[in-house]
């Protein structure tokens, strides 16, 4: 059990580090400059498909990294990731079929919400005054698409790593990469 915990932590470390590096290095998408929300995708995977403790840990870890990489003040992304975990784990997960598609839907819904939370925090701090509402609307639309894709890709990748590391077993899975759910 202890070995599995270390192995899960290792996979989480690789996933978060890779998501952070790719999210920062990817050029912004389109004129509305949305970064692919890979950290959110990783947090959604752990919230939707792993035990509560791993979901909460991933939410705090990814939230802290998102907080450090971006300009948003006051710990808002960290708080958002924690609330997103609570919502996914307690409200969404019992209602939907577990699988990569559910992760994608959760990512598509949460990514625009994160943009809104960031924008509100920037407005309150005075830095967001230069952001026109039409620009924000474009960001919400593009981030929904990017969030769905990022959560889908991050979910598949991390599920694959978890499966290879024997953190999740075939008996828990519909197939090796969790395509069809448990």
């Amino acid at each position: 059990m202890r070995g599995r915990a270390w192995s899960t932590l290792l996979v989480m470390f690789v996933g978060v580090a890779l998501a952070a590096a790719l999210q920062e290095l990817c050029p912004p998408l389109g004129a509305v400059r949305v970064k692919p929300p890979l950290l959110l995708g990783a947090a959604v995977y752990y919230a939707m498909r792993r035990e509560a403790v791993w979901g909460a840990l991933a939410a705090l870890w990814c939230g802290a990294v998102e907080n450090g990489l971006g300009p948003v003040p006051g710990g808002v992304p960290l708080l958002f990731f924690a609330l997103a975990w609570a919502l996914c784990f307690h409200a969404v997960r019992p209602q939907v079929e577990e699988g990569a598609r559910s992760c994608a839907l959760a990512g598509a819904a949460l990514a625009p919400a994160l943009q809104l939370a960031d924008w509100a925090a920037l407005r309150v701090s005075g830095a967001g005054a230069a952001v026109p509402l039409s620009f924000l609307a474009g960001r919400l639309l593009v981030s929904a698409l990017a969030g769905g894709l990022a959560a889908f890709a991050a979910g598949l990748f991390l599920r694959g790593l978890d499966w290879i590391s024997a953190n999740v077993g075939l008996e828990e899975e519909g197939d090796a990469f969790g395509w069809t759910g448990d």
Partner: peptide
């Protein structure tokens, strides 16, 4: 190193 930081707002 990168463009737009982690969020791309600015």
């Amino acid at each position: 190193l990168s463009e737009g930081g982690g969020a791309g707002w600015w």
